[in-house]
Design a protein around this nucleic acid. Structure first.
Length: 482
RNA sequence: CGGGGCGUGGCGCAAUUUGGUAGCGCAUGCGGUUUGGGACCGUAAGGUUGCUGGUUCGAGUCCAGUCGCUCCGACCA
């Protein structure tokens, strides 16, 4: 008897996620696969985004696309293949991307599979832009990107092909381009903090870390549970580097011919990886309500003598909730309620409604929060209002928890030894920097950490450079990165 | 690109040490009983052991090569 129970227990442990979040290296890929987000592909370095994972991407797309269109951006599509001579036109850009470009060729020409589309798009811009009246030009593209990484480390975070949107704008002045960079940063921040509930730090990249070919790069950085920073999105002011290389000129109001000022910016399917890592727990994924493809799952408790009545009630619930929320009624007969609880918890559905014969009798349902696991009986008539309120709370709670993690794991480093210790203990370090690339390089060499960003607003911090001890120019954030 | 690990039904594993013709759990199909936290009984189907070659009467097992996946570094969204 004891033996049987033991066997039973062991079996149970093999269902669902077996690795706890503490064992982060195992937990993450297991969760991604078991929650139905993605799978390994039969092609080296590539992944299959499964329907559930893709539906999260679609939610991200919808949210961002709407906001971009509201601020005057339009979508277009450019070729996957970029002639080598285009890619070479901006020297810094080319040398930056060269190591990870995949090529195909025919008898006439060698083509890059786009690692990013600045060059192919700006060839068109040189034809389209003639006058100040053509500006600003605000175009976005949703597409796939190829970067032939030598090795793949993680689903969603590093693959040879991934999905993204890339915005490419042209403006009459540097100030306008600056404004665009910040507008996009704000749009991204809204997506990432308000919808994905992931707190971020924003600032500029150092010269060493900026986009190849940019004047400067604005970045959003989030901290993952293993202490590594994840770049969530970037927005670059390209200055006139590309417009000079691609001859994108316009006649301004003052009748003078000028080169345009450009920006480019992107977020990728990597956001799904961040979402998974930041909010997930031992039971699986936890999706913030604003990005969850399914916000509420209804699980009927079927007893033989009451199943019809319960199902009828469950369907009525689904109908009454579905104009306000995205609802799924799981009325599959071949799975027990307990099985379904675990399944939908693994998939991270924020709110579960249980309804059984007892509830029908009492004109109530039981609400269960994914983030806290709390169960709460609610009168059916109060349900839409109450559900909305709880979903709001879950959204806020997830952000609050992630914010606390970010704060608790960001510590000041007064000297190099402290910096080393912090990085080793998986923290993000706030430290002074004299501004010299040499100090930056030594830190990277000896700790593995890079400058993730220089905050836009100068922050108070250690007065001396963490490496050389000279007066600090900026307070910056160091961390290892994905 | 450097170092480690692993490739056996869909998934997780056993059999490899000592060569003898592949087994278990989960999942799946069917029949039935069930269902308030991963139900149970019965039954069926499913594998040229990553690939190529070698040794042998005989290879999942030994040898060589190769491909893939994965972890740790370097590089990168």
């Amino acid at each position: 008897m004891g033996k049987k129970i033991q066997e039973k227990k062991r079996e149970k442990e093999t269902i669902g996620i077996t690795a706890p979040k503490k064992e982060f290296q195992d937990w993450y890929p297991e969760l991604v696969q078991k929650a139905g987000l993605a799978d390994y592909a039969p092609v080296g370095g590539c992944m299959v985004i499964k329907p559930y994972g893709y539906s999260i991407w679609e939610k991200i797309q919808q949210t961002l696309d709407r906001n971009l269109k509201d601020s005057g951006h339009v979508n277009a599509y450019f070729p996957l293949f970029i002639p080598e001579k285009f890619l070479k036109k901006e020297a810094e850009h080319f040398s930056g991307f060269k190591p990870e470009v995949a090529w195909i060729e025919d008898e006439n020409e060698k083509y890059a599979l786009r690692p990013t589309s600045e060059t192919i798009i700006y060839d068109s811009y040189s034809k389209w832009i003639r006058s100040w009246r053509d500006l600003p030009l605000l175009i976005n593209q949703w597409c796939n990107i190829i970067r032939w990484e030598t090795k793949v480390t993680r689903l969603f975070l590093r693959t040879r092909e991934f999905l993204w949107q890339e915005g490419h704008t042209a403006h009459a002045s540097c100030e306008e381009a600056d404004k665009e960079v910040m507008l996009i940063l704000k749009t991204y921040t809204d997506l990432i903090e308000n919808c994905l509930a992931i707190p971020i730090l924003t600032g500029k990249k150092s010269e060493a870390e900026k986009f190849a070919g940019a004047l400067y790069t604005a970045t959003m950085e989030a901290l993952m549970p293993d202490g590594k920073a994840l770049q969530m999105g970037t927005s670059h002011n390209l200055g006139q580097n590309f417009s000079k290389a691609f001859d994108i000129k316009f006649l301004d109001r003052d009748e003078k011919e000028k080169y345009v000022w450009q920006t480019s910016w992107a977020v990728t399917t990597r956001l799904i990886g961040a979402l998974t890592m930041v909010h997930g727990d031992d039971k699986g994924l936890i999706l913030p309500p604003k990005i969850a493809p399914i916000q509420i799952v209804i699980i009927p408790i079927p007893f033989k003598d009451s199943i019809k009545r319960v199902l009828k009630e469950a369907r009525a619930l689904e109908k009454s909730l579905s104009d306000k929320f995205s609802v799924k009624l799981d009325d599959r007969e071949s799975y027990t309620p307990g099985w379904k609880y675990n399944e939908w918890e693994m998939k991270g559905i924020p709110l579960r409604i249980e309804i059984g014969p007892k509830d029908v009798k009492k004109k109530q349902v039981v609400l269960v929060r994914r983030d806290t696991g709390n169960k709460l009986p609610v009168k059916t008539k109060d349900l839409p209002k109450k559900a909305g309120k709880i979903l709001d709370e879950i959204q806020k709670n997830l952000f609050r928890k992630a914010k606390k993690f970010l704060q608790d794991n960001t510590k000041p480093a007064g000297n190099f030894q402290q910096l080393k210790t912090l990085i080793k203990s998986k923290k993000m370090a706030k430290a002074g920097w004299c501004g010299s690339p040499a100090c930056e390089a030594v830190v990277k060499d000896e700790t593995g950490a890079t400058i993730r960003l220089l905050p836009f607003k100068k922050e108070k911090g250690p007065a001396k450079c963490v490496k050389c001890g000279k007066p600090s120019k900026d307070t910056v954030y160091f961390a290892k990165a994905y």
